[in-house]
Structure formats: structure tokens, C-alpha cells
Design a protein around this nucleic acid. Structure first.
Length: 855
RNA sequence: GGGCGAGUGGCGGAACGGCAGACGCGCCGGCUUUAGGAGCCGGUGUCGCAAGACGUGCGAGUUCGAAUCUCGCCUCGCCCACCA
């Protein structure tokens, strides 16, 4: 059985990536191979992958995240684009400060050490990062401009200071943005400690001003889940604000927000948040003690405690009454912590028949429940709220509005209230302004000074940066460590030059990352945050990749920044990132997130030491769909390494067998040989030419499919197709075709298509084949459409949808001929049992289905 | 509780509504080797000697034809969570 296929000879030289990988990386660096030129006239392509926090060592997840976009960047470059693919470090942040507290290392030094180490580790991956554009956010040359941008936001009224109840992490001793509080137990995103609320004077960015525009994704190609998460986070609700007069002298009417103004005839009570401003004035003396104790308890409770009482829906009657503007009924006013102070107006009308929470509350306190909207059937449910909202529900017991559909009722009631001056349609959002101040050291100081005379004043732009002092006390006390440095504190007022005190809070690191993609365009610019001309050239980012965990943090803040800067006249576009792709997460072998404390972190250095970077890159891309990730399981890395070994052998086996020219290819093409037809017997000649056609078909099909797969981030299937081409080259060698031009074309194509994924071995083999340096500067191959189509196709023949036979036909065989051949099949006849088929379904090039009269 | 996504061999995973399991791992057999390893060749969904039958979480439906579309259920993952 194996006599016709003698074992292929082992390659003359062993495949050992260690002998050439670092040599090529040094050459590429020395030649500045990956530097993107601002003035290059070719079409630009800005490809960006999220920069890392310099936590210490690069782990396998960084490799996974970076290799995908690197492949696409390399292909785009070969396709003729002027590609920029930069990298940097998000180097401000809490871990550096914690290292200082735990180990006594200064954050500045700790960060610098880590950045240096990780930069070297990044280089070992062989990515085409343009290191000449590196950005390090903790460098004064960077945060000077972060501060400058803060000042611009301040001047534009988009940065403001306010006393607010804020989420506070008791362990890290720091305030958190709302987006940084996670999970049902409301814990800190970084350390997992449950957060508490504190009232503090804090800095905010006015993200709410852009809520509506942030909901518009029409200009960008982003994954649906990310768009949904942002949409839900912004949480736009349409409804109405309605004023309810109160029975108390000198107290203004109370305004509530509702999405269901059509249910107003069912409003039988009112609930205020315990924090509502009117509570004090409205509470009657008889109820004062109970109200005070409830309010105090609510204030003391943490978010988790509120959650644990979730179904309680407890509240207190404050003794006062409001008037339902439609029914003119007196309704009691309660306070309850299920009404949130920060959403809507902090007050609701209680409509127990049509809201589950109101229903639970009314049931508990025996308040009236009145159904005013009924389902089309016309019967109110017993013992539960009817909350569905469809177009054909009907209003009942609603005065002049009775009989209207719910959607007509919303419009008509809102209009009626507006005419009376008691309400208007309104839109509310869940999104809050972005809390940006942190009581921490290792961040960009907020460039504000406080003058006893002139209040908060921005530091003049020519006095930036406000440098972080080196000597401070890092102990987490809840106040900014910068307060421990007297020299830093002392400042002068920019207005009166009198003594002033410097702001000691620093900025959330997400401020740094909201504009780093702009800085990459002109990283050395020192007269401005960026050079407007080069920013206009490179921006927006054409393709951004990173983890989906940033859906409502970084990705929303960056959009907000760009829109705000556009409105200040600083940027000429609306969106930072035109397309977005999310990679999956590589989990530990135990299916848990990789972390040092779990001891499941995979160190890429061990793997590259054994197999080289190319194997690790290919293996990571071969695991599965890139956007899916998965648990770490290195069992098949050997298989990928073997594949590169087969490429190694294939590319160097260029002699032997029958040298044949390719029809239509010049005889002097690389690997071409003069015709020698007379030397070969006719039958063998036909076999050789069939083999050549098959190989060229495999080659050109690979060009088409691998390119499409790379562009779609389907790296796993791209690699399987490259394996297929490699196997086809092996078959060609077995058939004695190693010396043909078709074989040379196949090898060159294989190397070019593999170059983005395995940059080192392809460069080495390209050089060994005597081709011009560098393979990474070659043009991406084009396929010939005629060769993508196979000579003969195998057509499955079904009877009643079940596979019964196959036809081998030329692709251009007529449907009539195919039907004739299918019906002539013995196997088909056996199933037809002499009957005439009811119909024959044909999908051109795909299959034939013979449908029997019974089928 | 709400939203989104995913369930396919022993494993990772392929498959514009059209041949289920590409490609690879593992395993079995062979060649080579003093041996081991490496490399190479062949086989490998399940049941069955075979013919064949059965197979994509479970149950219905649409269709000539469903892993793929629709409905219901189960399991897992992620996000949000008293948002009026």
C-alpha cells in the first residue's frame, strides 16, 4: 500500500526557530521596517489594539490579543496600505501605588521597570508595532496634555465640581466611577470589596450632555453586544414629567417622572426618595420621628444592605398629601428607598395596578389598587400588576380618555397636562456624569488651584504640567497623598496672584486612555496635545481591537471625549473608532480567569523558548475563533509546530521529479524549466499535468480564502487552509512535481500568505529561496478566478433529502445533463423503484435532490 | 428578575438553509530506527461481520432538504439589575 508513496525524506536541515528568530527581529528593528510615515502618499490605515497596563510581565493573554490585529496589520500593509500600528502603556493607576505601599517601591520606579520589561517581551512576539510612536501616559510629556485637556473641558463647562454621594471603596480608600462598581453586591471592580456611599466634593465630566449622541452608532461598525451594552447603560426612557400639587403652605408642587402617563388615573399614592429635598418641609410633626429614623437608616445602609432587603419595599408615610392632577383625589405621600434620588426627579406617582414595585408596596401598606388600563380581552388580572405595554391595550376609568388605546392615551394625557401647565413630555437617562477625581497619588494631578478670593481656577496653560512630586506619604488614608507634600500644595491664584491651595486629587486613568489614540499620531509634538494635520491624516482609527470588558468604560469615555473635543473645535470628526472587534479571553487550564493568586498564569517566555514565537502565535490563533477565547490547553501546540516544520521542508524541496512549464506562465519564471515533453510518456504526462492543475487550484483557492479569513478575524480557519495548501505541496512532491514552476508558485504563495501569522519562519525561508528582503514588504498575492474553480466537482445526489450517490462533473455541466446523470444512477434508480420523480431540485454547483412521489 | 450569547466525535473546533465532523490534537496500525524519540504513510462519529441504520442539548414546527430558520424547554457563560 505504501510502495507507491515512499516516505518523504526528512529536511536536510532541522527546523529550529531559535537559530533565526531573534536575528530577524534585530534586522527589522535596525531597518525601521515597521515605522509608519506621516507623509506616505498611499491610503492610510490606522489599526489600534488596546494598550496594556504595565502590571509586570506579559502573559499569554497579551499575546492572544495582539497577534490577531498584528496579522491584519501585516496583511493590510502587504495590500498596499500605509499602516500605523502603535503600542504604548497605560501606566498610571492603583497597582503601582499598592506596590509602593506593600513593598516600598516608588510608583515611578516600579512603573518604569515594568514598562521596560514588558516592552522587551512585546518585541519578542514579532509584532509590527511602530515603537517610534510609543506613548507612556505617566510621562510628564503626556500627562501635561491630559491636564491641558482637563482645562479645556473646564473652560467649556464640561468639567465641574460638586458635592455628591459617591461610591467609595473602603479597601482602596478611593472613589469609583459608577461604571467601576460591579455585580449584584456592588463591589469594587479592582479589589472586589463591597463599596459604600459617601458624600464628597468631587470632579465630574458632563457625559450626560452627550447621552443622545452616544446612542447613535450609525457611523461605526461595532459588535452588536457592545452597542447594546452602551445603549442599556445610557438607558434612555421616554415619558412625561408631571407636577402634583401638595397640601402644604409654601411648598412647590412635586414633579414626578413616569414612562406611563396613560396610567395616571390609577395613581393612588406618591413616593419620594428619602433624600428628596421636599421631605423635610412636608413631613408632619406626628410623623417626624419615624421619618427621621427611616431616613437615617437608609443613609447608613450600603448598597448591599439595600439589596438584601430587595423584596421588602419598605417605606414610611410622611403625613402629607398630594393631589392627583387628573382625578383631583388626595393621595398620601410616602418615602421609600426603592425610589432612587439620582434617577428621574427622585419622586414617582404610585400606580400599583400597573407597576410591580408599586404593587408590592401598595399590598404591604394596604393602599388602593385601581386598574385603568386593560388588556384587549378586557379583564384585569387578580392579585398582580398588569404591566405589559402593547399598542392595543385600552384605557378604562380614565375620564375623557376612557376607551383610548394606551399609546393614544400617553399622547393625549401628556398634551392635556401640558395645556394646564402641569406637565410635559420628558426624557430621562440612567447614565450619570463621569466622576473623574481620585484621592490617589499615581495619576495626573487635576490642574486646579483654589483661591480664597476667586475659587477654583484652572492652572494657566503655560504652567503645565503640574508635576507629580516624588516625595509623598502613600499610606491610604482616604485623602489624597498629595496633601502630605507642603511644597506641592502651595500655589498662587492665576487671577490675583495671591496665595492659593492646589487641588490634590488626581484623574481617573480612564481620562488618560480617552485620548491616547490621538497622541500616537504625533507623539513627539510638544507645542500642542497633537499636531492637527497628522491627526486629520490618521484619525479616525480604522480598526480597534480589545477586550469586551471595556464596553461601558473606556469605549464610551473615548467616544465622549472625541465628541466634546469636536464641539470645542479641536477635532474634525465624530467618532474615534470606525470599526471594533473584541477578542475572547484566554482562561487558565482550570477555566478560571488567569491571575497570579490562582497560580494559573501561563508564561509565554517558556513556550517561545521551546517552540519559538511563530509557533506560539500560530497556536494561539488556531485554538478557535479569535472572538471566543477559551481555557488554556497546550496539547495541540506540537501539531502546529509540526505544521511549520512541514512548511520548512516544503519550501526547501525544490528539485526532483519532472520539470514542467506551466501553461500561460513564462518558462523563465522563478522555478520554471524549459519544456521537455518528448522525454515523458503520454500517460505519465497527463498525470503530471493533472497534478499541476490540482496544485495551482489549491494555491489560488488559498489566496482567496486566507485573505478573506484574515480580514474577518477568522484566523483559525485561515490556518487550517494554509495547512491544506502545505499538504497539497506534499502531495505534489510525492507526485514528482517539486521541480515545477507550479510548485515554486505554491511555495512562494504559502510563504506570503503565512507571513502575517508567522513572520520569522517565512522571512527565513524567503531569504533561503533567494527572494528579495523583506517578505513583509512584498505585495499580497492576487488569485486568478479561473484557477479558483476546480476542474471537476463532486456533486452529491440525494433522494428525498438523503445522500445516495455522487456525480463527478465539470463545473459547467448543464442542469439538464446533471438531471439525466442523476436519474441514470443505479443507486437513485434503486430508491425510485420505477416511479417517476415528483421533482428534481438542483442547487447549481452544490447538489441534486430527487424527490419521489411519496417524498 | 431583565438582556445578550453558546450547546456538534475522546478533545480544540469546521460547515452562504444543501455531502455533518474540514483542519489539528489524541488514539490504532504500518515504514524507518539497536532502542526510544523525531519524521513519514494509512485508519479513526456511534451501532453493525456486512448491507445498512442512527447521529449536531431536549421537544415540536417550517422546508424537497435544518447543526443552521421559528416556537417552547433544559444547561452553561457574559452583561445589567428597585431605572418609575
Amino acid at each position: 500500500m505504501t510502495t507507491e508513496n515512499p516516505a518523504r525524506p526528512a529536511p536536510a536541515e532541522r527546523f529550529d526557530p531559535r537559530t533565526y528568530e531573534s536575528r530577524w527581529r534585530e534586522r527589522w528593528a535596525a531597518d525601521d521596517l515597521y515605522r509608519a510615515d506621516d507623509a506616505d502618499p498611499r491610503e492610510k490605515h490606522y489599526l489600534l489594539t488596546m494598550y496594556p497596563y504595565p502590571s509586570g510581565d506579559l502573559h499569554i493573554g497579551h499575546w492572544y490579543a495582539a497577534t490577531g490585529p498584528d496579522i491584519v496589520a501585516r496583511m493590510r500593509r502587504m495590500q498596499g496600505f500605509n499602516v500605523m500600528f502603535p503600542m504604548g502603556f497605560d501606566s498610571f493607576g492603583l497597582p503601582a501605588e499598592n506596590a509602593a505601599i506593600d513593598r516600598g517601591a516608588h510608583p515611578m520606579e516600579w512603573t518604569q521597570t515594568n514598562v521596560d520589561r514588558m516592552r522587551e517581551q512585546f518585541r519578542s512576539m514579532g509584532c509590527m508595532f511602530d515603537w517610534s510612536r510609543e506613548v507612556v501616559t505617566s510621562d510628564p510629556s503626556y500627562y501635561r496634555w491630559t491636564q491641558w485637556l482637563f482645562v479645556q473641558f473646564f473652560k467649556a463647562g464640561l468639567a465641574y465640581r460638586a458635592m455628591a454621594p459617591v461610591d467609595w471603596c473602603p479597601k482602596d480608600q478611593v472613589t469609583l466611577a459608577r461604571e467601576q462598581v460591579e455585580g449584584a453586591d456592588r463591589h469594587c471592580w479592582r479589589c472586589g470589596t463591597p463599596v459604600i456611599k459617601r458624600d464628597l466634593e468631587q470632579w465630574f465630566f458632563r457625559t450626560t450632555r452627550y447621552a443622545d449622541e452616544l446612542l447613535d452608532f450609525s457611523q461605526i461598525d461595532w459588535p452588536e453586544p457592545i452597542r447594546l451594552m452602551q445603549t442599556n447603560w445610557i438607558g434612555r426612557s421616554e415619558g412625561a414629567e408631571i407636577d402634583f400639587a401638595v397640601e402644604a403652605d409654601g411648598v412647590a408642587p412635586i414633579r414626578v417622572f413616569t414612562t406611563r402617563p396613560d396610567t395616571i388615573f390609577g395613581a393612588t399614592f406618591m413616593v419620594l426618595a428619602p433624600e428628596h429635598a421636599a421631605v423635610a418641609a412636608l413631613t408632619t410633626p406626628a410623623r417626624a420621628a419615624e421619618v427621621a429614623s427611616y431616613t437615617a437608616a437608609a443613609r447608613r445602609e450600603t448598597e448591599i444592605e439595600r439589596m438584601s432587603a430587595e423584596r421588602e419595599r419598605a417605606g414610611v408615610f410622611i403625613g402629607a398629601y398630594a393631589v392627583n392632577p387628573m382625578t383631583e383625589e388626595r393621595i398620601p405621600i410616602w418615602i421609600a428607598d426603592y425610589v432612587l434620588p439620582g434617577y428621574g426627579t427622585g419622586a414617582i406617582m404610585g400606580v400599583p395596578a400597573h407597576d410591580e414595585r408599586d404593587f408590592a408596596f401598595a399590598t404591604r401598606y394596604d393602599l388602593p389598587i385601581r386598574y385603568v388600563v386593560l388588556p384587549p380581552g378586557g379583564t384585569a388580572p387578580e392579585g398582580e400588576a398588569f404591566v405589559a405595554h402593547t399598542a392595543d391595550e385600552v384605557l378604562v376609568d380614565s375620564g375623557a380618555f376612557t376607551g383610548m388605546t394606551a399609546s393614544d392615551g400617553i399622547a393625549a394625557i401628556t398634551e392635556e397636562l401640558a395645556e394646564r401647565g402641569q406637565g410635559s413630555s420628558a426624557i430621562t437617562y440612567k447614565i450619570r456624569d463621569w466622576l473623574v477625581s481620585r484621592q490617589r497619588y499615581w495619576g495626573a494631578p487635576i490642574p486646579i488651584v483654589y483661591c480664597p478670593e476667586h475659587g477654583a481656577q484652572p492652572v494657566p496653560e503655560d504652567m503645565l504640567p503640574v508635576l507629580l512630586p516624588f516625595d509623598v506619604d502613600f499610606a491610604p488614608t482616604g485623602v489624597s497623598p498629595l496633601q502630605s507634600n507642603e511644597e506641592f500644595l502651595a500655589a498662587s491664584c492665576p487671577v490675583c496672584a495671591g496665595p492659593a491651595r492646589r487641588e490634590t486629587d488626581t484623574m481617573d486613568t480612564f481620562v488618560d486612555s480617552s485620548w491616547y489614540f490621538l497622541r500616537y499620531c504625533s507623539p513627539k509634538e510638544d507645542g500642542f496635545a497633537w499636531d492637527p494635520v497628522t491627526v486629520r491624516h490618521w484619525m479616525p482609527v480604522d480598526l480597534y481591537t480589545g477586550g469586551a470588558e471595556h464596553a461601558v468604560l473606556h469605549l464610551m469615555y473615548a467616544r465622549f471625549f472625541v465628541k466634546a473635543l469636536r464641539d470645542m473645535g479641536l477635532l474634525p470628526f465624530d467618532e474615534p473608532f470606525l470599526a471594533l472587534r473584541n477578542q475572547g479571553q484566554i482562561l487558565g487550564a482550570d477555566h478560571q480567569r488567569m491571575s497570579k493568586s490562582r497560580g494559573n498564569v501561563v508564561n509565554p517566555d517558556d513556550l517561545t523558548g521551546r517552540f519559538g514565537s511563530d509557533t506560539v502565535r500560530c497556536f494561539l490563533m488556531f485554538i478557535g475563533p479569535w472572538d471566543q477565547g477559551g481555557p488554556w490547553n497546550p496539547s495541540s501546540i506540537e501539531g502546529v509546530h509540526r505544521f511549520l516544520g512541514r512548511v520548512w521542508a516544503a519550501a526547501q524541496a525544490t528539485t526532483g521529479g519532472h520539470p514542467r512549464p506551466i501553461p500561460g506562465m513564462p518558462a523563465d519564471a522563478p522555478g520554471g524549466f524549459p519544456p521537455s515533453a518528448g522525454e515523458v510518456p503520454g500517460q505519465e504526462m497527463a498525470a503530471i499535468e493533472g497534478g499541476i492543475r490540482a496544485l495551482r487550484h489549491a494555491t489560488h483557492l488559498a489566496i482567496k480564502e486566507v485573505g478573506e479569513d484574515y480580514a474577518a478575524f477568522h484566523f483559525n480557519t485561515a490556518l487550517s487552509k494554509l495547512m491544506g495548501l502545505t499538504n497539497a505541496l506534499g502531495d505534489a512532491r510525492d507526485a514528482g512535481l517539486a521541480g515545477t514552476a507550479a510548485y515554486a508558485e505554491g511555495v512562494d504563495t504559502l510563504l506570503l500568505l503565512l507571513a502575517p501569522m508567522a513572520p520569522h519562519v517565512t522571512e527565513e525561508l524567503w531569504a533561503r529561496r533567494g527572494r528579495a528582503y523583506s517578505i513583509h514588504q512584498q505585495a499580497w498575492p492576487d488569485f486568478e478566478p479561473a484557477l479558483v474553480v476546480a476542474d471537476m466537482i463532486e456533486l452529491p445526489v440525494q433522494v428525498d433529502g438523503k445522500l445516495r450517490d455522487r456525480l463527478l462533473v465539470a463545473p459547467d455541466t448543464s442542469p439538464q445533463e446533471i438531471e439525466r446523470l442523476a436519474l441514470a444512477s443505479e443507486r437513485v434508480q434503486a430508491y425510485l423503484k420505477g416511479r417517476t420523480p415528483r421533482t428534481v431540485v438542483q442547487i447549481p454547483g452544490r447538489l441534486v435532490n430527487v424527490v419521489t412521489p411519496g417524498g
